[in-house]
């Protein structure tokens, strides 16, 4: 039985290790192939909490981008109502879906990566998007419409860099050839759509069943009260 002090201490050391291991992300940005290989195979580089932290950073920068982007690059008055859980979901959910779909397919297609490897690699690959979000905010407050190309370039660059990193990450993590990596990437996207469809379907069915049960309950309670 651990005491609270011990738990706090292990938590503290965990957080410290997480932050100590995070700067490796910048090494990955500069050397993606070596970086992702090391991230997967060197136990000293493993950083699952760091991956979660990076997804939170992505969500935070997305919300910042939504709220702080200059007037010229936002929908009028859109910043007046903000739904934080929704924004977090919009920013992070596609990646989570991708991770699940990718894991599903690659475990059938001789992929070397375990779920935690895919998760960590994808999280580290989102760093360019966070950086470009942060860069786009001051830029959007400085340029005019005629110079909007600069802003659009920074945003688009963030997306392209991020998706490129995800691709390289999958390539290295699963030890695939480029052809196979492209095939699994396409399959993963299809899988994302399938998962999204199933989620919607289940949600719909659950609401139906719940509605039926509630209706049944009301009906019976009315009868009993008669």
């Amino acid at each position: 039985m651990k005491s609270i002090g011990e738990i706090a201490k292990s938590l503290g050391t965990g957080i410290v290790t997480m932050f100590k291991r995070l700067p490796f992300a910048f090494y990955i940005l500069a050397h993606p192939f070596d970086g992702f290989y090391e991230l997967k195979n060197d136990p000293r580089r493993h950083n699952l909490p760091g991956a979660v932290f990076l997804f939170l950073v992505l969500a935070l920068t997305s919300i910042m981008k939504r709220q702080l982007t200059g007037y010229l690059f936002t929908e009028p008055f859109a910043q007046m109502n903000l739904n934080v859980p929704y924004e977090i979901a919009i920013a992070v959910l596609p990646f989570i879906l991708f991770i699940i779909a990718n894991w599903c397919f690659t475990s059938l297609m001789d992929g070397d990566g375990k779920f935690r490897d895919i998760f960590t690699a994808t999280a580290y690959a989102t760093i360019p998007m966070s950086i470009c979000n942060l860069l786009a905010i001051p830029l959007s407050n400085f340029v005019t419409i005629s110079e909007s190309g600069m802003y659009n370039f920074v945003v688009a660059f963030g997306y392209v860099w991020c998706y490129g990193m995800v691709f390289i990450g999958m390539l290295v993590t699963h030890q695939y050839t480029v052809k196979k990596a492209i095939a699994t990437a396409i399959l993963s996207i299809v899988g994302m759509a399938v998962i999204a469809f199933i989620i919607v379907l289940i949600a719909f069915l659950v609401t139906q069943v719940a509605g039926f049960v509630i209706q049944l309950y009301t009906e019976i309670s009315f009868r009993l009260n008669e």
Partner: peptide
Amino acid sequence: FSKATEKENYSKAYG
């Protein structure tokens, strides 16, 4: 201009 949602004119004034 921001109240009028006039981005073109806003951009001009801001420039």
